[in-house]
């Protein structure tokens, strides 16, 4: 990589760092949310749960047809639920972003694809990823504008 190109990309690197690290203001007071999730073959109702960071989530889990389970990625929640016997799960939504919850008990053919989404606002990972995409796109286009002729991708 030429020195000139390096200088060119430096501002974009800085911009990327800003996008990744800048704290964004967000401060609704945490509340306790009573939510009910009903599992059926092969979906959760509601499909998307929206809470704010810091909220205490009290989930009542029900199954309407056969035995299902609930595994929430990265929240360590794992519960088995059978029709007629509601389960209660409680956790504090202390991490922001989108986390999938999945059925953890084989429940039929499409079981591996039985998922729902827990969206903990502010969804900073998504916002930052979008920002980073725009930075990467801009950096790529700008570097192409100044590209000396004859270079090929994969060769730097």
């Amino acid at each position: 990589m030429t020195r000139a190109r390096l200088w060119l990309l430096l501002p974009f690197g800085a911009l990327a760092l800003v996008v990744l690290l800048v704290p964004l203001p967000f401060a609704p007071a945490p509340v306790t949310r009573e939510l009910t999730v009903v599992a059926r073959q092969f979906a959760f109702e509601p499909p998307v749960l929206r809470v704010n960071r810091g909220d205490r989530v009290r989930l009542t889990l029900e199954a309407s047809d056969v035995v299902h389970g609930l595994h929430v990625d990265e929240y360590g929640v794992d519960a088995r639920v059978e029709p007629g016997i509601a389960r209660r799960v409680e956790f504090v939504a202390d991490r922001a972003g989108k986390f999938r919850y999945r059925c953890s008990v084989s429940c039929g053919p499409l079981h591996p694809f039985m998922t729902g989404e827990l969206v903990v606002s502010p969804n900073l990972p998504f916002v930052r990823a979008v920002g980073l995409t725009l930075v990467v796109l801009a950096a790529t286009l700008v570097s192409l504008r100044r590209l000396p002729p004859g270079g090929a991708p994969g060769t730097t």
């Binding site: 059926r40 092969f42 979906a43 959760f44 109702e45 499909p47 998307v48 999938r100 499409l110 694809f113 039985m114 998922t115 729902g116 989404e117």
Partner: peptide, 8 residues
């Protein structure tokens, strides 16, 4: 991979 049961 989406959450929409009706499409599944």
């Amino acid at each position: 991979l989406g959450p929409w049961g009706w499409i599944k």
